[in-house]
Amino acid sequence: MSFGEKRSWIYAVSALVVSVVYFATVLGQVPGADVTKIAYIRPMLTAIGVAVVLNIVASVVATIASPRDADKEDERDKEINRLGQHIGFYVVSVCALVPLGLAMVEAEHFWIANSLYLAFVVSAFTSSIVKIVAYRRGF
């Protein structure tokens, strides 16, 4: 497995795991509660921070595990990365329509912030999956 593919797996898994934990924790409080009273800012910032740190740590571990591959990136890696970013851009653009609509109807900040965070997560996850599929099946 090339280092680029490993990096995509790390990105996909960290995006998925951290966001699932975050949404389970925060959205679990929603039923029967006043969303304006739910403290989501600190958990969201923590989730973003944890995802970043998890990515860095996992990448360092992957580098230590196979240092020979870590600094190698060729034209195929670049093309696959570009394809993933390209698809990810369209996904985040479409998903961002939800918080935009919520802002227009003056929904609670809770919903706007969480739908925007979800848009970023979905984009990051989709982008990583596209890259993994491109690495495995070709493109």
Partner: peptide
């Protein structure tokens, strides 16, 4: 040719068309 082994494998298996330069 300055690429990863995985790229050579992908080319050999027809999963990737290299650039003209490669």
């Amino acid at each position: 040719i300055g690429v990863t082994r995985q790229t050579v494998i992908a080319i050999e298996q027809g999963r990737y068309s290299p650039s003209l330069e490669m």
